[in-house]
Design a protein around this nucleic acid. Structure first.
Length: 105
DNA sequence: AGGTTGACCAAAT
DNA sequence: AATTTGGCCAACC
């Protein structure tokens, strides 16, 4: 199978990877998908994140797009920016310095 | 069933 | 540097 169908096993794989991202670091949607075992399924990562409960303890804010930009619509983008800054990740002209903060295990 | 829609991405223009 | 293009893949009409 290799296909994703609302099976919780797939979702928990995304969540497991998400939980491992260290404080003060970020990954891209594509990175998250690949680490979860779904290479080239960046949009799938976005769908999983979108469905996370609003009160999740998972570090959803550590996931940004491949250009180092926040991919959320306002007003959630503002919350993500705040959370990142709380961890010492500043956005310079709307961008995270991927060379400095991208997590590579 | 089949078309459209995204918290996407890399390569080409 | 900014846009466009083609690929991606499950959810949702």
């Amino acid at each position: 199978m290799g296909t994703y169908n609302r099976d919780n096993d797939a979702i928990s794989r995304f969540c497991r990877v998400l939980a491992e991202i260290p404080r003060g670091q970020v990954v891209t949607y594509g990175d998250l998908a690949e680490m979860a075992g779904y290479p080239r399924a960046a949009r799938l990562a976005g769908q999983v994140l979108r469905r996370l409960p609003g009160d999740t303890k998972l570090p959803w804010h550590r996931v940004i797009n491949a250009q180092g930009r926040i991919s959320l619509p306002e007003p959630r983008a503002q919350r993500q920016r705040e959370r990142l800054e709380c961890e010492g990740i500043a956005l310079i002209k709307g961008r995270v310095d991927m060379g400095k903060y991208r997590w590579q295990p």
